[in-house]
Amino acid sequence: MPPERREPREAALRHCLQIGVDAIKAGRSPLDVVELVVRELEDNPHFNAGKGSVLTSNGTVEMEACIMDGNTKKCGAVSGISTVKNAISVAKLVMEKTPHIYLGFDGAEAFAREQAFSDGMETVDSSHFITPENIERLKQAKAANRVQIDYTQPIPKAEEETSLPNGDSQIGTVGCVVVDGYGNLAAATSTGGLVNKMVGRIGDTPIIGAGTYANSLCAVSATGKGEAIIRATVARDVAALMEYKGLSLKDAATYVIEECTPERTAGLIAVSATGEVTMPFNTVGMFRACATEDGDSEVAIWHDEPCD
């Protein structure tokens, strides 16, 4: 990966780690911290969420997000967001201010507009999210007649009519998991979905137990091919293996990624109530980072750079 692609993403991860650590030190709840960090990632065009969201087959943006509190299992989720700067904050308001868990499309947009005045939620024109990079990604996907995770290298002319395997991701769904010194947990995930996805398609990110889950044992946020993650109920299965089989977080997450999801489709970040961290993936790489309150931190991409 050329430095001009790698370095801004690594810098963004380090910046977000510091935001999270500072918030924990200030006594913010894990639920507040995951929202803060994911908002920052949504505002960064180098990731597939918020400003960097990839485009549907119609050239539009349909963002998804989910947030969950481990102690109470309260959660909120949205799909089809196209005019709100931070979808994760809409998801949190669904959790806090409605009797529901999940709002989508016109209903979610209308709810967000209602909340904009009282909660300072920033609404924007949908063109805010249409970047030149994502127009090019959509062009590539249409040329290959495929739906893809996000960015792939340009497709050789001779291969344009074939069905190609997924390219190596160079942007991606964003997520954050947090545990505080008392063992309280939270998870949040946000995404623009798949390049060239059908209008109205919903992925794993907003589905509780698939792309996002938190309980008293662990908090999990997944990334990759949503259809594969939904079929494997990735996030919930990590927690279930801990709860019912007594596995450690690392063993549970490794089993789910290596045995339950097809190769080159998924990865996750997870933290346990005791502070164990793991970030397994079965793709070539996954941008990931972790930090502790006492100053230790790591940023990694490839398999030979452990971040546990």
Rank of each mutant, 00 (worst) to 15 (best):
P206F: 05
P206N: 09
P206T: 09
I207D: 00
I208R: 01
I208S: 02
I208G: 03
G211D: 08
T212I: 08
T212L: 09
T212C: 15
A214D: 08
N215G: 06
N215I: 11
N215V: 12
S216N: 11
L217C: 02
L217Q: 02
C218V: 02
A219W: 00
V220W: 12
V220M: 11
A222K: 00
A222E: 04
T223L: 00
T223D: 02
T223W: 05
G224T: 05
E227F: 01
A228Y: 00
I229Y: 03
I229R: 00
I229F: 04
I230F: 13
A232E: 07
A232G: 04
T233G: 03
T233F: 04
V234A: 13
V234Y: 04
A235L: 06
R236C: 11
R236G: 06
R236W: 15
D237I: 15
A239F: 15
A240K: 12
M242F: 12
M242T: 14
M242C: 14
E243R: 15
Y244H: 07
Y244D: 02
Y244I: 00
K245A: 14
K245Q: 14
G246K: 07
G246L: 03
L247E: 10
L247Q: 04
S248P: 02
L249C: 11
L249I: 08
D251L: 11
D251E: 12
D251C: 06
D251S: 06
D251P: 03
A252R: 00
Y255N: 08
V256F: 02
V256Y: 06
V256C: 10
I257L: 08
I257C: 08
I257A: 07
E258M: 09
E258A: 05
C260Q: 15
C260L: 13
T261V: 14
P262R: 07
P262H: 07
E263Y: 01
E263W: 01
R264N: 13
R264W: 02
R264T: 02
T265R: 07
A266M: 07
G267Q: 02
G267W: 00
G267P: 10
L268C: 03
L268I: 10
A270N: 09
A270D: 10
A270C: 03
V271G: 08
V271N: 08
S272H: 01
S272R: 01
A273R: 10
A273Y: 02
T274Q: 13
T274S: 13
T274G: 05
T274E: 15
G275V: 03
G275I: 09
G275D: 12
E276D: 15
E276Y: 05
V277E: 13
V277A: 13
T278K: 10
M279P: 10
M279V: 11
P280N: 08
P280T: 06
P280V: 07
N282S: 11
T283E: 00
T283P: 13
V284G: 05
V284T: 14
M286K: 04
M286Y: 06
R288C: 13
C290E: 06
C290H: 12
A291K: 14
E293A: 06
D294V: 14
D294E: 12
G295R: 12
D296M: 13
D296L: 10
S297H: 15
S297A: 11
E298W: 15
E298A: 15
E298P: 08
E298C: 14
V299N: 04
A300I: 08
